[in-house]
Amino acid sequence: MPRRGWMLVVVAAALTGVAVAVVMHPVAHASPDPAVLARRIALGKQLFNDPSLSADGTVRCASCHIPERSYADRRPVAIGVHGHTGTRNTPSLLNVAAGSESSFFWDGRRTALEQAVLDPLTNPVEMGLHDHAQLLQRITRNPAYRAAFAQAFPDRSDSLTPSEVGTTLAAYVRSLKQPDSPFDRYQRGDRAALNPRAQLGLALFQGKAGCAECHRLDGASSALTDHAYHRSGVGLDGITANLPALTEGVIARSLQGSAIGDRVATHVDEAQLGRFNVTLDPADIGLFRTPSLRGVSRTAPYMHDGSVPTLDEAIDREVYYRSLQAGYPLNLSVEERQDLKAFLEAL
């Protein structure tokens, strides 16, 4: 069978089959002396808030991961240098490194936070620097940064490296913890922390609605994700007719790491392919990483492309799509949907 015909077959199978969950193993990272770690966190915070590390001097990491907005930006997709728009919704950074660090970005193209935090700096529609050499040049021309890196890495003897920049930014991101929520207090035994409606919502979340199958409630401080990849039905309709050409192009390029991010940020159609851009496995077309639901009521809009504007619509969308996957309607009443929303607001 010609390659194009083969691709049509596997693409069709991927779209009609069951979503494949891919779980990545966590990446270990060393724990430095507490004083050194504190210096790295402080330095990472400075870098995170420094617009001089963008191509036009106007965009910071905090331009999209806004502290007052739960380290998201409440836009459908990110806006970067020169007003360029990306293709992916900005996720919150709160608790992003909690529990098992498995993968980062919607398609899971990075498995180490130290790598993931560097990618936006050189992404053409995010912060837009040409390469890591330009990043290091901008940092080292600042005497205060040179002194701070010397204190944050007291044992190093050579010049600044991208790895050290990534380490400081990752240290800061790991320090971003969501405040205690009513659900956390409820899990610790405070039964009054969740109001009656939210408790009904929790029962639905774990049972009839099936949410906990992907947004898992394991452990004392639940991450509310299975660290896997699933198909939500969002975004595929617009690219179905062109799938063979899109997928063959991705396979021909076989990009890795930050190059994947650069490509999907500038090609809307390919961005909808999700995990496939990383694995090149047709079964992964349209699969995206399960986001944590921590602080979900404050991070609208939703889905990988920001196409679902409100929490009510996200609930309706999930109920509808889970019904399609199950082969029968979930039949949540209006009251039950409000109960489920009350629980999500308690996260």
Rank of each mutant, 00 (worst) to 15 (best):
R4P: 00
W6N: 13
W6L: 15
V10D: 00
A13V: 04
L15D: 04
A19V: 01
V20R: 10
M24R: 12
H25F: 00
H25V: 13
P26H: 05
P34H: 09
A35Y: 09
A42I: 11
G44Q: 04
K45R: 15
T58C: 11
P67I: 05
V81Y: 12
L93T: 01
N95W: 12
V96T: 08
A97H: 05
G99W: 11
F105M: 06
D107N: 13
A112G: 08
E114N: 14
E114H: 15
Q115A: 12
E126N: 07
L129H: 09
L135T: 09
Q137D: 07
I139Y: 01
I139G: 02
F149K: 11
F149S: 03
Q151P: 00
L169M: 13
S175I: 00
D184T: 02
R197A: 02
H215D: 03
R216Y: 02
S222T: 02
L224R: 08
T225S: 11
H230D: 03
S232A: 12
N242A: 14
E248I: 12
I251C: 01
S254V: 05
E270V: 11
F276P: 05
F288A: 08
R289W: 08
S292Y: 06
P301S: 05
Y302C: 04
Y302V: 01
V308H: 06
P309Y: 07
V319Y: 06
V319C: 07
Y328G: 06
P329W: 10
L330Y: 12
L340W: 05
L344D: 01
